[in-house]
Simulated scan of single mutants.
Amino acid sequence: MIIRLLLAMGISYLLGSIPFGLLVAKSVKGVDIRNYGSGNIGATNAYRVMGLGMGVLVALLDIGKGFLGITVARGFFPEEPFLILLVGVMAIVGHNWSLFLKFTGGRGVATSVGVLISLAPGAILVVFIVWALIVAITKYVSLGSIIGAGLIPIMIFLFNNPTVYVIFGLLICIFVIYGHKPNIKRLLSGTENKITQSKVKKKD
């Protein structure tokens, strides 16, 4: 059991570690996305650097990592909800602290969405609507992501999902908000980048 768990966690972590934003930017633009915009490898910065189409592609790929993480977990432990969640978390850990990026990475939002879509789709639909409204009104993706993360465990609970899913949602909330610490500082200081930024400057 322990060997199977470690193997499943390792596979999920490696899937999460794939830096799609970096790979797509190098393939399409021939640039290191970490040197532009916010310096993040996620979909928002991919949008700033490469445009809407590539931003959506990176978002879908990062969501896919979380979805595949849960798929791997269910393949190893189809009747063990707690172990499924534990393995799923490792995809998010991989995205945030990628083996291929010297244990740095993104904020974990899209990968968390991929994990949760396969566990609590109704709750995530509500969170997505709230996220979209906040981004549309404020133009701050980070603010929408932070507030959305805070809503995740609440909505999972309100949708009468298992308690272990609520706990998992709380863990994801902590991961995402912790990963947004630099964004929180910029939001408080009024220097956070907006989604409508038209000119991408090289990161200082």
Rank of each mutant, 00 (worst) to 15 (best):
G148F: 01
I124S: 05
I147D: 06
L143M: 03
K139L: 06
F103D: 00
G148A: 06
L85K: 13
G88H: 01
V141I: 13
G144T: 02
F77Q: 00
A120I: 02
A110H: 01
L143D: 02
A132P: 01
A91P: 07
A123Q: 12
G106L: 02
L158E: 13
V135C: 05
I146H: 05
P153S: 07
L101P: 13
P162F: 09
M155A: 12
I92E: 04
L125A: 12
V115G: 06
A123S: 15
L99K: 12
P81Y: 04
F76I: 07
I147V: 15
G150Y: 09
I129N: 04
P153D: 10
L158G: 09
F82K: 07
L151H: 11
P153Y: 10
V113W: 13
L125F: 14
V164E: 15
G75V: 05
S112Q: 01
I117N: 01
L101A: 05
F157I: 05
S118V: 14
I152P: 11
G105F: 11
T111Y: 10
V89L: 15
L85W: 01
I124C: 09
G88S: 08
L151Y: 05
A73C: 12
I70L: 14
V126D: 08
V89H: 00
L125I: 13
E79T: 14
F76Q: 03
L119W: 08
L125P: 01
V72K: 10
Y140K: 08
W97N: 10
W97M: 07
H95E: 04
I156P: 13
K102M: 10
M155L: 15
F100S: 00
N160D: 15
S118G: 12
I134G: 07
S118I: 11
I70M: 11
P162E: 07
R107A: 14
E80K: 14
V164A: 15
L85C: 15
I152W: 03
A123R: 04
V89N: 12
G88W: 13
E79C: 02
V130C: 04
H95Q: 11
S142C: 11
A132T: 08
R107F: 01
F128V: 05
L151W: 08
K102Y: 11
N161R: 14
N96W: 00
I84Q: 08
G75E: 06
F100Y: 14
F77D: 09
R74Q: 15
F157C: 13
P153I: 07
L85V: 02
G150K: 02
I156G: 06
M90P: 04
T71M: 14
W97T: 02
L86Q: 01
W97V: 07
S98V: 03
